[in-house]
Design a protein around this nucleic acid. Structure first.
Length: 493
RNA sequence: CGGGGCGUAGCGCAGCCUGGUAGCGCACCUGCUUCGGGAGCAGGGGGCCGGAGGUUCAAAUCCUCUCGCCCCGACCA
């Protein structure tokens, strides 16, 4: 990033994204390729995501647990498709000791080679299903509804902060059910939880849908997804929920005795979202001044900037600012920026770049008037708010208005960039001039799907749930064969 | 694994072509004046120029080798 500015979105979207992350002081350079050092302000966003989501999981009957990050290598080979999907990007632990080397450094001690290498989990299905086999015996043990907050490692060739990193933080829910229907219901229910969360908390209007076979999770029978649109019209998969059938139950021999006394394999789901959501929030809302955060995930929702010129003003301004902070504190994430050797203007710019929704300026004039001067990060001019009985409610009303405004703007953008086209040529033409979601009638076929990807880099993001049925009587926009689904094509991260 | 680029102060860079022993901006430290939209002035600290070898009286600069990183592709449940 240049010293003062941020690359405009229109000029170079990728650079703009990196600039916004730098301006927001979200991450620092990592000494490890592809891994992130997440600084406090960036981690604060993730913490807000975590606490909101965790409450939603609890409300739907789930509990948290924790499983080891090291998985015996042999576990990975038990489910054929699963190993196919992940084997290419696994990190291995092969030794448990270092020794001094000739060159003065250290090296793995050959005498301390592990009998069986350990895989650093790329996802936890295998070790969790190994344990579920021990925990599940009876239909009375079902359903088993467990979530884990953890880190996982996938040795990706190309990485990008938050969107695709070698190590990332996520939650993974793993559930076991007595019947197929119950498991499918769980998978779709959790997709709904994610979708609600994206709208209500992240202010991102996602499209819930089903993945095509090509894009399906390795080992799943059905993969559900929420797809978000970024400001450049590209799609970002923001969360997934999988119906795993009995694949893992069979691979790890997890059976239960039903009420008739017969043994059956259990039915499974898994679902997850990751720190990629932080990237989604950054890309969905930020502008050419820097980060823009929805109040519900902003680590600092309100920043107070005290202003004084003379020493005699300093004390009363700070005293007033402190009381304002204490008033807002119980209900709001508020920060009083009382750094002394920094001018107010410099603070304004810093907090704007960090995406803080509301800034309250407090100077001698405001103290005299018993009010604060409010500046919103998005929408509206500065205005005074009296510090009276209605003060907290007034600030919260602004936060709500900002949150709503972001969702409205993102929804308007998504709708404007969602194109219904009838022919492939139309999509191909518009993909370069106005990229976005292309809603089309589609005859499902992995081979033609691949042809399209090779030809114009667009892939099926999902078969959106809201539009299924509309394809009836229509011809596939690419092949002309009878359409089997409504599909959304887009270029994707 | 292909194609391209870059390694010089904490960060971002110039200097290299045409060798003469290192500079700029930001950040940092000290002081004074400032303070309602990115402060100004003065002074100061910090780098064996990625590494090794070679040419030379002399190498950040030229030559050879090497290591690392970044970008574009391949890859991406």
């Amino acid at each position: 990033m240049s010293q003062q500015g941020i690359t405009p979105r229109e000029k170079d979207y990728s650079q703009w994204y990196l600039d916004v992350i730098a301006a927001g002081e979200l991450v620092d350079k990592s000494p490890v390729r592809g891994c992130m050092v997440i600084k406090p302000h960036g981690y604060g966003i993730w913490e807000a995501v975590q606490s909101d989501l965790d409450a939603r999981f609890k409300a739907t009957g789930h509990v948290n647990a924790y499983f080891p990050m090291f998985i015996p290598q042999s576990f990975l080979s038990k489910e054929a498709e699963h190993v196919e999907g992940f084997a290419k990007e696994c990190a291995l632990v092969t030794h448990h000791r270092l020794r001094s080397a000739e060159d003065g450094g250290v090296e793995p001690d050959p005498a301390a080679t592990l009998e069986e290498p350990l895989v650093v989990r790329p996802t936890s299905e295998t070790i969790i299903w190994h344990m579920y086999g021990k925990w599940i015996n009876s239909h009375r043990d079902l359903p088993l509804l467990i979530n884990q907050w953890a880190n996982v490692v996938r040795w990706e060739m190309r990485t990008r902060p938050f969107l695709r990193t070698a190590e990332f933080l996520w939650q993974e829910g793993h559930t076991a059910h007595a019947t197929r229907d119950e498991a499918v219901e769980e998978a779709t229910k959790m997709l709904g939880v994610y979708s609600d969360f994206a709208h209500e908390t992240l202010a991102i209007p996602v499209i819930p849908g089903v993945k095509s076979a090509t894009e399906r999770f390795a080992g799943a029978e059905e993969t559900y997804t929420i797809e978000a649109m970024m400001q450049n019209g590209w799609a970002l998969q923001a969360g997934t929920s999988h119906f795993l059938g009995q694949n893992f139950a069979k691979a790890f021999d997890v059976t239960f005795q039903n009420s008739e006394g017969q043994l059956e394999h259990v039915w499974a789901t898994s679902w997850g979202v990751s720190t990629r959501l932080v990237g989604a929030v950054i890309m969905a809302h930020s502008d050419d001044t820097g980060l823009v955060l929805p109040p519900k995930v902003a680590p600092v929702q309100v920043v107070l900037v005290p202003i004084w010129r003379k020493d005699e003003d300093k004390n009363r301004v700070l005293q007033f600012a402190n009381s304002v902070r204490d008033t807002l504190g119980p209900s709001t994430r508020v920060h009083l920026d009382d750094r002394e050797k920094m001018k107010p203007g410099a603070k304004y710019f810093e907090w704007e770049r960090k995406g803080v929704p509301i800034r309250l300026e407090i100077g001698p004039r405001d103290v005299d008037a018993n009010s604060v001067f409010c500046a919103r990060r998005t929408g509206g001019k500065k205005f005074g708010i009296p510090v009276d009985d209605g003060f907290v409610a007034a600030v919260h009303a602004e936060l709500t208005a900002i949150q709503d405004g972001l969702l409205q703007a993102a929804t308007a953008h998504r709708d404007a960039r969602t194109h219904r086209v009838d022919t492939y040529q139309q999509m191909k033409d518009q993909m370069d001039t106005e990229p976005g979601f292309f809603l089309v009638p589609w005859h499902d076929d992995a081979e033609t799907e691949r042809q399209i990807k090779d030809d114009c880099k667009a892939t099926i993001r999902c078969f959106p749930l809201a539009y299924q049925g509309e394809q009836a009587g229509k011809a596939c926009f690419y092949s002309g064969r009878p359409a089997t689904h409504m599909a959304i094509f887009a270029r994707a991260y």
